[in-house]
């Protein structure tokens, strides 16, 4: 087989998907980029869309709502991700322990359910269980002697509620990823280690962690992207409120697009966010993730 042919063959496989994504994905991206330099109001589109240079970018970076939403999203990822990781790892260890086989198999099935639950619906039943007057969370908290609190009405507690539902839905994902990752550790490695030390913590650090890193990284990339995109669940739970206290980036941009109809600034914010996520994912991949080597 000639070298020429060898380089062409993979493209024959890749091109349909590549071309289709380009077709579907490129136009809106170019559109967004162009719009970000225009004054573009959807509701007064008939007045024209003049070029305004970097105005939209300056407005975005000076907008306390956008900066606030970015910082809030960053904070959310920084808190939720480690919690999901620790809890997920814990559940993975439970599932990996070689006893109670039936229960373990059942748990594995059950863990799939939160992941599969429609996020819109998660927000809906979230609003029910966190309701101040008749929510079951307040009832359970009340059993512990704590006065009913207004979960969705207080800025801090509303964020806690969003956070709790996010962790509920996606910790199982981390757990299942980690469970599979644990299985990649060669048995001999662990057995050899038993001969030298019986410290569980040491075993975790020296033997298991190196094997766990790829799984943790994959889960982290997946979850970071997911949380940056997080919209549906918060939309039905709090709509970003009260005030702007649960306004993550997607919610803020949705309101800018469809309540203020300011597509120009929304586009500028999008471009900024795109750069941020691409840099972030490159960093993740460079530092942790092994790219596919042939």
């Amino acid at each position: 087989m000639s070298r020429q042919r060898r380089t062409l063959v993979p493209w024959l496989f890749i091109l349909p998907g590549f071309g289709f994504l380009l077709l579907v994905g490129l136009y809106p991206l170019v559109f967004t980029f162009v719009t970000s330099f225009e004054r573009y109001h959807l509701d007064t589109i008939y007045l024209g869309t003049p070029f305004v240079g970097f105005d939209n970018y300056i407005d975005s970076l000076r907008s306390s709502l956008f900066i606030g939403a970015m910082l809030r999203t960053g904070f959310f990822v920084l808190v939720a991700l480690p919690v999901e990781m620790v809890l997920g790892l814990g559940i993975a260890f439970l599932l990996d322990r070689p006893r109670n086989d039936g229960l373990r198999a059942f748990t594995r099935v059950i863990l799939v359910l939160p992941i599969a639950t429609t996020p819109v619906v998660v927000g809906l039943f979230g609003a029910l269980i966190f309701n101040t007057q008749f929510g079951v969370v307040n009832y359970l908290v009340g059993l512990a002697g704590i006065r009913p609190v207004d979960w969705l009405g207080s800025p801090t507690l509303a964020m806690v509620s969003v956070f709790a539902l996010q962790v509920w839905q996606w910790t199982p994902f981390v757990a299942l990823v980690m469970l599979a990752t644990l299985a990649t550790i060669p048995v001999e490695m662990e057995d050899a280690f038993f001969l030298e030390s019986n410290s569980w913590l040491k075993r975790l650090r020296h033997i298991r962690l190196p094997y766990l890193i790829p799984g943790l990284t994959a889960a982290a990339i997946f979850q970071t992207a997911y949380m940056i995109k997080l919209f549906d669940m918060i939309y039905t739970l709090t709509r970003g409120g009260p005030g702007e206290s649960t306004d993550l980036i997607s919610l803020q941009m949705e309101r800018l697009s469809f309540r203020a109809f300011d597509a120009g600034q929304a586009a500028a914010e999008s471009v900024i966010m795109l750069v941020v996520t691409l840099v972030l994912s490159q960093l993740y991949i460079r530092f942790f993730y092994r790219e596919p080597e042939a």
Binding site: G25, P28, T32, K229, F231, E254, S257, A263, L274, T277
Partner: peptide, 13 residues
């Protein structure tokens, strides 16, 4: 990286 794109961004286009 297509997975990283925020959908809200592309709704209007």
């Amino acid at each position: 990286s297509n997975w990283m794109i925020i959908p809200v961004v592309l709704v209007i286009p």
